[in-house]
Design a protein around this nucleic acid. Structure first.
Lengths: 189, 189
DNA sequence: GCATCATACTCAAGAAAGTGACTAGTCACA
DNA sequence: TGTGACTAGTCACTTTCTTGAGTATGATGC
């Protein structure tokens, strides 16, 4: 039930509409919890029914009206409870790893391609996260920001994302190289 | 639907019973796709119904009989198709990250504790994976194994797991340290 | 002037994953 | 003699995630 808490966490920073939340999720929260807009709308409705967030209608002239949500005291207390409860162990859970597992025996070619696409995607995300971090930090240096900056939680999770993407990119490239080399070696025999 | 293919991938190496598969999953495949025994039994039943694996009954004297499964030609073809299909982008998906996101505002204490527990768990897994890799490699060096070793797929996914756990451990320790320092600083004011 | 994009949502259905409880025999140990 | 751990699995249920479609309006581009 962490989507629920991820939404609460995101709303702790700011009031958001479902639509805005979907965008915000895409850039920062998506690092560690991805969700489609439909899920977010559904979750917001449930959170409101449970009294953990409240929505207020904002009438707009030139665009459709929207509902902005903010966390209630009960919502904050729920986050508190959540923080105290045990976390489940994390693991990678990646299609591509399943494919690599058998890549030396079935369908090596397409896997190499996918590894290289992934590496490129990870590289792009890496850059994006780098900029996001620069932005949050402003012109204070990192040590100072970590010690006294605001919203350090978000900064720390982005650091995790950054490390993950870097690691992911490097592994994809290395793995692609290994599989390519092996194809070469096989062909020579 | 990658659990399905993770199971097929695991059965490609060896015949397994559901029970054995659950154990095997726990040590190697779990790096990138975790599942409970019940899920594996259910998946095996579905795979058999679809003709992608076949089971054979093995009568045992001193323990309950078991059914060993192996991949059929259709199963192999299914893996082939799977390898060619696009993979969905991977992300971290971790409870603890959600907690860290708000850790500077709600319940810092328990989050620090959990980070340190996680770091320890990651350290343990790191060691385990290190041993597994040593074991697979035997006494050939890594470059040589990667070029010519058997089951290099499994080796490569374990390398990914290793990097993930190391990164995870380091980040947990650093994050715990940062949050602790901030508590200190806050207390001084 | 028409197409497409952006805002702002909703509904329904289905697939995948996760949880809890339960059966049943064997073996070791104290 | 019973307590717990290990082998080997089954059944039922719930939650979560994904997919696909649909509604409505205004703004932007060619």
């Amino acid at each position: 039930m962490a989507l629920r808490h991820a939404v609460l966490a995101a709303l702790l920073d700011d009031e958001y509409s479902g639509y805005q939340l979907a965008k915000a999720f895409d850039i920062s929260v998506a690092n560690f919890w991805h969700a489609l807009p439909q899920q977010l709308y559904a979750e917001l409705a449930r959170l409101e029914a449970d009294g953990l967030v409240v929505g207020r209608e904002v009438v707009q002239e030139t665009r459709p009206n929207k509902r902005l949500f903010r966390v209630t005291e009960a919502g904050r207390a729920e986050l508190e409870r959540f923080a105290e409860a045990a976390s489940k162990p994390s693991s990678i859970r990646d299609d591509l790893l399943v494919k690599v597992q058998t890549a030396d025996r079935v369908g090596t070619g397409p896997v190499i391609e996918q590894l290289e696409q992934r590496a490129a995607a990870a590289g792009a995300k890496l850059e994006l996260l780098g900029k996001l971090l620069d932005n949050m930090r402003g012109d204070t240096d990192e040590a100072e920001y970590l010690l006294r900056g605001e919203r350090v939680g978000r900064y720390l999770t982005c650091l995790r994302g950054l490390a993950f993407e870097r690691e992911h990119r490097d592994w994809c490239l290395r793995t692609a190289a290994v599989l390519r080399e092996r194809q070469q070696t096989d062909a020579e025999r």
